[in-house]
Amino acid sequence: QRITLKDYAMRFGQTKTAKDLGVYQSAINKAIHAGRKIFLTINADGSVYAEEVKDGEVKPFPS
């Protein structure tokens, strides 16, 4: 399943989102408010992988 960072954070909370991605909650808040195009893939085992689309390139998040 693929979902935006904002939607994932709204569904699970910023604290869990940060923990799942290995970053601080403040980084999640800042990324959402900056309007960054970050998409999360939720794997069947429950693990989460995030990618950011920037300038036409897709890069892992966090980099």
Rank of each mutant, 00 (worst) to 15 (best):
D20G: 04
I28C: 01
T15N: 12
A50H: 01
V53P: 02
V23G: 03
F39R: 03
E57L: 13
P60G: 06
K19A: 13
Q25S: 11
I42D: 01
K6V: 12
Y8S: 00
R36S: 07
V53M: 12
E52S: 03
I28A: 01
Q14H: 13
Y49C: 09
G46S: 06
G13M: 01
A9H: 05
T15Y: 15
R11L: 14
I28Q: 00
F39S: 04
D7H: 06
G13E: 01
F61I: 03
P62K: 04
G46E: 05
D55A: 09
K19M: 11
G35A: 09
A44Q: 11
A44N: 11
R36D: 05
K59T: 13
D20N: 06
S26M: 10
G35F: 06
K30I: 11
Y24V: 13
T15D: 14
L5Q: 00
I32V: 07
L5T: 01
T4D: 06
K37A: 14
G22M: 06
F12T: 02
K54N: 12
A44M: 10
Y8V: 00
E57T: 12
N43L: 12
S63R: 13
D55H: 10
K37T: 12
A18Q: 03
H33L: 15
I28D: 03
K59A: 10
R11I: 14
G22H: 09
I42A: 04
L40N: 00
G22L: 04
F61C: 06
V58S: 10
R2K: 13
Q25I: 15
F12H: 10
S47H: 08
E57S: 12
K59D: 04
A34I: 08
K19R: 12
G22S: 06
E52A: 02
I32N: 02
R11C: 09
L21Q: 00
Q14E: 15
E52V: 04
K6L: 12
G35L: 07
G22F: 05
Y24P: 15
T41P: 00
F12C: 05
I28G: 00
F39T: 07
T4W: 08
A50V: 03
A34P: 02
V58N: 08
D55E: 10
R2D: 03
A31W: 13
K19Y: 10
A34Q: 13
A9N: 06
L21C: 04
Q1H: 10
K59S: 11
F39K: 02
Q14G: 09
T15S: 13
A50D: 00
K16D: 03
V23F: 04
G35H: 10
Q14V: 15
L5D: 00
P62V: 05
I3N: 03
I32E: 02
D55P: 06
G13H: 01
I3K: 03
Y8P: 01
I28R: 00
K6F: 12
R2C: 09
T17E: 01
A9R: 06
Q1S: 12
A9Q: 08
L40Y: 00
D20S: 06
P62E: 05
F12L: 04
G56F: 07
I42M: 09
K16R: 09
I38V: 08
T41Y: 14
P60N: 06
N29G: 12
A34E: 15
D7R: 06
Y49P: 00
I32S: 01
H33D: 13
F12D: 01
R2N: 06
N43K: 12
V48I: 13
A18T: 03
Q14F: 15
R36Y: 06
E52I: 04
K37H: 14
T41Q: 08
A34W: 07
S47L: 07
R2G: 07
T4Q: 07
G56Q: 07
S26K: 09
T17A: 11
N43G: 10
F61D: 02
I42H: 04
I32L: 13
A27W: 12
V53C: 11
I38T: 00
L5G: 00
R11D: 04
T17C: 07
I32Y: 02
V48N: 01
K59E: 08
F39P: 00
A9P: 00
T17H: 01
R36T: 05
A31P: 01
Q1D: 12
E57M: 13
D7I: 05
F12I: 03
A50Q: 01
S47Y: 07
V58C: 08
T17R: 01
Y49W: 14
G13C: 02
A18V: 02
Q25V: 15
I38L: 03
R2Y: 10
T4S: 14
S63W: 08
Q14N: 12
T17Q: 01
K16M: 04
K59W: 14
P62G: 08
V53E: 15
A27P: 02
G13N: 02
N29R: 14
K30Q: 15
Q14K: 12
G35S: 08
E52D: 03
A18D: 01
E51A: 05
I38S: 00
L40T: 02
T15M: 14
I32D: 01
D55F: 08
K19F: 09
S26E: 11
A31E: 02
A50M: 03
D20W: 03
R36F: 06
Y24C: 15
A50I: 03
G46W: 05
R2F: 08
K6E: 14
D45F: 05
P62Y: 04
N29L: 12
Q25L: 11
K59G: 11
E57A: 11
S47F: 10
P60S: 08
A31N: 02
M10N: 13
F12A: 03
D20C: 06
Q1M: 14
R2E: 05
S63C: 11
R11K: 14
F39C: 07
V48E: 00
T15A: 15
A50L: 03
I38A: 00
L5R: 00
A18P: 01
T17F: 02
G56H: 08
G13V: 01
D7W: 06
A27K: 08
G46N: 06
F39G: 01
A50S: 04
G56S: 07
G35K: 13
H33P: 02
K30G: 11
R11F: 09
G46M: 06
K16A: 07
M10H: 12
D55L: 08
F61G: 02
M10Q: 13
N43Q: 13
V48C: 06
G22R: 07
F39W: 14
E51G: 04
D45Y: 04
I42V: 11
R2W: 15
D7Q: 09
L21K: 00
Q25P: 15
T17I: 05
I38F: 01
T41D: 04
S63M: 12
L40H: 00
S26G: 11
K6R: 13
L21N: 01
Q1A: 11
A27Q: 14
V23Y: 05
L40S: 00
T17K: 01
K59F: 14
D7F: 04
N43S: 11
T4L: 08
V23A: 06
